[in-house]
Design a protein around this nucleic acid. Structure first.
Lengths: 150, 150
DNA sequence: TGGTTGTCATTCGTACTGCGAACTAAACTA
DNA sequence: TAGTTTAGTTCGCAGTACGAATGACAACCA
């Protein structure tokens, strides 16, 4: 049963091709991001922290939630970035237990240079697509992400 | 100059929307892969090793190239997986210096269960797209990856 | 108001990742 | 055959990430 398909070797479903493409793309993009981060002596996670804080000021726990990390991990991450002068900790006005994290000017500069570089690294590939293909791709990806991906 | 666009705040280019969608998707997919790996006490990299070796038998350096890692990193990675009985090292028939790596039965089983789980986790999202949208997405992603993404 | 309970963040110990440099062994090459 | 290149390993290092334990504050309630 279930072998109405010609190839039964490892039973690939028809979805597998999209999945492969997705996984491969995810990895390629992640590699680019990691490389850009490394050029500034940052880990991928640190670059993400900077990007998130570009237009926000968050408490530790919110930041951890954004990144899907434990709070104890955040502490170390923020420690090192703070020591490098990229961000700072401040008290919360409304909660004496909470700590708020925000970028320093230097951190903001690095965040902006970093994202510009990411853009520069990725744009050449996206321009292999026509403008209308780009819009189509964007729409499809958004639909996909909105559909869950948990 | 360069502000012929209405919003000049952080000078977003029209490409940025695709890029954001790409980055977001990449992260979501990576998160799923990492979670599945963790459920089997594997890192994302180790899961990738198993997946790569599913239908191949590779020498250390080839494996390192696939993953974009240093050989010294591979040694440790393979050490740990070997200690867990997931893969094995063997000599090369043609080169006395080389070491070939291949999955054990246990490793193969884990690799298969892992990829099945990844499929199970991602398919619900892809089925939010119609079959023809899926094919379109796949084609666009492939075009993108083929275009470089270095 | 005072005590209990829960939340926010930190510290500590542990395991793993990934790198580069130094090293051994095997394979070319001149 | 001597010298060079290539394949892997080992070692030390810094960073990531986790979970358990701890201290400080907040919120609840009796």
């Amino acid at each position: 049963m279930t072998d109405d398909t010609p190839t039964d070797r490892v039973e690939r479903t028809p979805d597998d091709d999209v999945l492969d493409a997705l996984a491969q793309t995810a990895h390629a993009v992640t590699t680019v991001l990691t490389r850009v981060a490394a050029e500034h002596d940052l880990s991928l996670t640190q670059l993400r922290v900077l990007a998130i804080l570009r237009d926000r000021r968050l408490r530790m726990s919110a930041l951890a939630d954004y990144l899907g990390l434990e709070r104890s991990t955040m502490s170390g991450l923020v420690d090192r970035a703070e020591k490098r002068g990229l961000l700072a900790r401040g008290p919360s006005a409304t909660d004496g237990r909470a700590v708020e994290v925000y970028l320093t000017d230097e951190g903001r500069g690095l965040a902006e240079r970093g994202t510009a570089q990411v853009r520069a690294a990725l744009v050449p590939s996206t321009t292999a697509l026509t403008p209308s293909e780009q819009r189509r791709l964007q729409a499809l990806l958004e639909k996909l992400v909105d559909a869950g991906l948990h």
